[in-house]
């Protein structure tokens, strides 16, 4: 079984270092990058599926700046087999349309039974790239997965899709593209052995020329959207701390709610 995992290196949200450049693009060079949180859950699931199948490989696919291998090594240390990185100076400032096209083109060079992605990225939070890639690549798209169950013999995959009131059971032929959630399960920590092994694993780099994509149609040059300005929201009012008996504290909360017409 061969599974491609779409992994996006993103600035670590916990570092507080997320910044925009003066032109509104994300400052990727100066933010410490990690593997997007949601991508780790689908990676974990992919590793489990390949382990259960007893054969196969897990391939990482990223479109990111040239320093991305540093971040991809962590995913390789978790157990992924190898990585494919699409990187090109002309990709800087790409919008979701370009990202979708580029990743779909790179995906077409890889043979796979399943492609998995996170439901959204912590830096963009658009949650639109996987559905777009599926549409371009002509793959069935199953989203918001809480469970992924492929049947290699029947060449079908069954997914539990989270809904507001429960879940839907979706089924499609393979290959298919699935976006997954944290409900798939906690990602493993890389073992020392995994970290050592990751150093020797292959990360193949592809450029726009390799994919036959015109550089003027992507990046800032081809972007469909642009940031006009960015401002810090007004600071929140100072916190009012209440240290009273439970009844008095609750009374003050109720008064406050009434003042703000929330009750």
């Amino acid at each position: 079984m061969r599974i491609v995992v779409l992994t996006k290196p993103v600035p670590d949200p916990a570092s507080g270092g997320e910044r925009l450049l003066p032109d509104g693009r994300l400052d990727r060079a100066n933010s410490p990058a990690i593997v997007n949180g949601n991508d780790e859950y689908v990676l974990e699931k992919a590793l489990k599926l390949v382990e259960a199948a007893g054969e196969g490989e897990v391939i990482l696919l990223s479109m990111a700046p040239a320093n991305a291998p540093e971040t991809m090594r962590k995913a390789l240390a978790m157990g992924a087999t190898r990585g494919v990185l699409v990187t090109d100076p002309a990709l800087e400032g790409s919008c979701t349309v370009a990202t979708t096209r580029v990743l779909a083109a790179a995906l077409a060079t890889l043979d796979s039974d399943l492609v998995v992605a996170g439901i959204d990225s912590s830096d963009g939070v658009a949650g639109v790239v996987p559905a777009g890639i599926a549409a371009v690549a002509g793959l069935p798209y199953l989203s918001y997965a809480a469970e992924i169950a492929p049947d290699m013999a029947a060449r079908t995959v069954t997914v539990r899709r989270i809904t507001p009131t429960g879940y839907d059971v979706l089924q499609a032929p393979m290959p298919a593209l699935i976006s997954g959630t944290q409900a798939l399960g906690e990602p493993r920590y890389p073992s020392l052995k995994g970290i050592m092994a990751a150093r020797g694993k292959e990360i193949v780099t592809m450029s726009l020329a390799d994919l036959g994509i015109d550089p003027t149609t992507v990046g800032t040059a081809g972007a469909t959207t642009r940031v006009l300005d960015a401002t810090a929201p007004p600071p929140r009012a100072a916190t009012r701390v209440i240290r009273e008996t439970p009844d008095e504290a609750a009374r003050q909360v109720v008064d406050f709610l009434a003042e703000r017409r929330l009750i």
């Binding site: 979701t96 349309v97 939070v125 798209y141």
Partner: peptide, 22 residues
């Protein structure tokens, strides 16, 4: 919403129209 994002992603890819999300 989940459905809205799926729809927006696919529609964007089918039309080439950009997306401003959220």
């Amino acid at each position: 919403s989940p459905d809205g994002r799926d729809l927006a992603g696919a529609l964007s890819a089918l039309t080439g129209w950009g997306v401003l999300a959220n």
